[in-house]
Design a protein around this nucleic acid. Structure first.
Lengths: 217, 217
DNA sequence: TAATGTTTAAAACATCTGTTTTAACCACTA
DNA sequence: TAGTGGTTAAAACAGATGTTTTAAACATTA
């Protein structure tokens, strides 16, 4: 057995199990037994369960961010980018990167879990390691939507993010329903195609007037 | 101490802790000690931890569904409902019901957790107990958006749901950022006002052509 | 071949989990 | 007042969890 075959097998198995059942609900014993690896191997190779979780994310996000950064650099150099182009670039990069291993839906589900579960220690990790790329994307988005107040854009980014993460998180269940009820075999690619126009117009929706501070319940 | 004061205190504490740390990450010992209640009280009054989780949801959702059902009945009787009216009714009902106790953001976060965490046992519970009201809402939504293919509407509903659940789930963190970066003290009411136009136009976005099945990667 | 550093194996450790049990407590009725 | 039903208290139970330890196996280099 190659030296780091154990590491790969742990990562693959952990990734699948985390996505399926969540972080806290997945024990190291389940991971190691399913990966046909000794229990202590996780602590030996990764140090702790927490570090294993982060390693699972890094294996996805590191190549994604590298790719996305070069794409963003090209857009920055060119200039005059439209909202459609920017979002399409994001979607295309997302689709292109993780095609090799576990599907995109698995990772999206992990992302959703990281945000809601694990009392924010994962959130902090994501912010520290990938916040710079996100800021770069935000900057481009601001150039595409110059009429939007900053606060409004901020909230809409998270509306978008919520749509993506939530739908992808529940993808398996939703796909089953879509197949049963509408005979549609939805592929990830289809879902992204469905999301693009929705997100694009959502970002450009009219800016509402906020209710007055006085009239509180 | 009133007879069921213990029950209320368990529910209040569990609700807050679940929302803060998730279901699996919150132990009965943490709940009962914080609620100043004996450990065995949870199993005595609710039967199990799982049943306690469901009770937390029922305390929110039962009054909400009752209210929302009467609102929907009024709309059905009247007829000719617009998309804006339907969504506004949903938003207004959501805002009006849980104002008495723990804030809406707490419940929204619970809802998000229920969908992603707990490997679907909560999802099944929600479907069984509140699926009928949801179907009724879906029916009205279909009348409001007659040009939308059923499958497209199905996915967009979940895009919307994702926006709401995800944003509300992360509300505390996002609100802090919004306050620091944009000096905006976002209230739930403001957030709902921000969401309404976005969701409305998102539902009415142009229907995309899906990529051909042949051109797979 | 001998020695060295890395990886795996199996067991034990300490702690935490949800749940159950047993006894005490308390309010209320007969 | 005696007793009954509902509630609380404290302890124990059985099992699962992340982590650590000790020894064996392995590959690689001197």
């Amino acid at each position: 057995m190659a030296q780091s075959d154990t590491v790969t097998r742990i990562l693959d198995t952990a990734e699948a199990l985390f996505a399926e059942k969540g972080f806290a609900e997945t024990s190291l014993r389940t991971i190691t037994s399913k990966a046909k690896v000794n229990l202590a191997a996780v602590n030996y190779h990764f140090g702790s369960k927490k570090a294993l979780i982060q390693a699972v994310f890094a294996r996805y996000l590191d190549p994604f961010c590298e790719q996305f950064n070069t794409e963003l650099a090209a857009l920055e150099k060119r200039g005059g980018v439209t909202l459609e182009e920017l979002l399409e670039t994001l979607a295309r990069t997302t689709l292109s990167v993780p095609a090799s291993k576990g599907s995109l839906s698995v990772f999206m589900r992990l992302l959703g879990l990281a945000y809601t579960q694990a009392q924010g220690h994962m959130r902090r990790y994501l912010q520290e390691h990938y916040g710079q790329t996100f800021a770069r994307f935000s900057q481009q988005l601001k150039l595409c939507t110059p009429d939007l107040p900053d606060a409004e854009r901020f909230w809409r980014i998270h509306f978008m993010l919520g749509s993506v993460v939530f739908t992808m998180s529940s993808l398996d269940a939703l796909r089953d329903i879509a197949y049963n009820d509408y005979a549609e075999k939805t592929r990830i690619k289809d879902l992204v195609a469905r999301m693009l126009p929705v997100v694009t117009v959502a970002m450009q929706a009219p800016v509402p007037e906020l209710p007055l501070p006085s009239e509180s319940a």
